[in-house]
Amino acid sequence: MSAHTADTTFPPDSFYDTGEHHPQNGTMLGFWLYLMSDCLIFAVLFAMYGVVGANYAAGPGPKDLFDLGLVAVNTAMLLLSSITYGFAMLEMARGRQNAVLGWLAITGLFGLAFVGLEIYEFAHLIHEGAGPQRSAFLSAFFALVGTHGLHVSFGIVWLVVLMIQVRKMGLTEPNRRRLACLSLFWHFLDVIWIGVFTFVYLMGVLR
């Protein structure tokens, strides 16, 4: 045994080290699994929209209701918030706390602009009598787009909470992990929005 250890320069446990990037604990994988289950919620909502999306009940259709200019601005807000969150993550890797907080604040503002525009759109639709109870198409539309908007809203709440955390505790390892989770969440919502603007808005107007 002693002859064996004398032969090698590695510590004994390096025998098991295959050089892979082992996670310290399962938080990131667990959060990814949550996102995948969230993905299934959206898949079901998309499926519902696909099934009943053309049932207008003699009411207004997508062509009468959707303002693509507004949707384009909304899309831009979400995309900009995605890259500003990315910049926050880059500053986090450099350990620059104030820069992280700054980019997070900008991300939050873009997120608020997105939610604000969506609330404006919903209020406008309901005011025109095209609320969720008008037709199966509008029920599915409000359910799908509303669920996405709720996710973004809760993402903003989470973002504000994390900003307070980072301000109070600094860029500690738990805070970095939380910021990384929110990063996945935020970019995931942007991915879902690609589906929404393509299938609901653009293809709706084409129909």
Binding site: Q24, N25, T27, I83, G86, F87, L90, R176
Partner: peptide
């Protein structure tokens, strides 16, 4: 550390 983003400035800008 676990969960550290492996992104780069160039990567984010390219994606954007």
């Amino acid at each position: 550390p676990e969960g550290e983003a492996h992104g780069t400035f160039k990567g984010y800008v390219t994606g954007f």
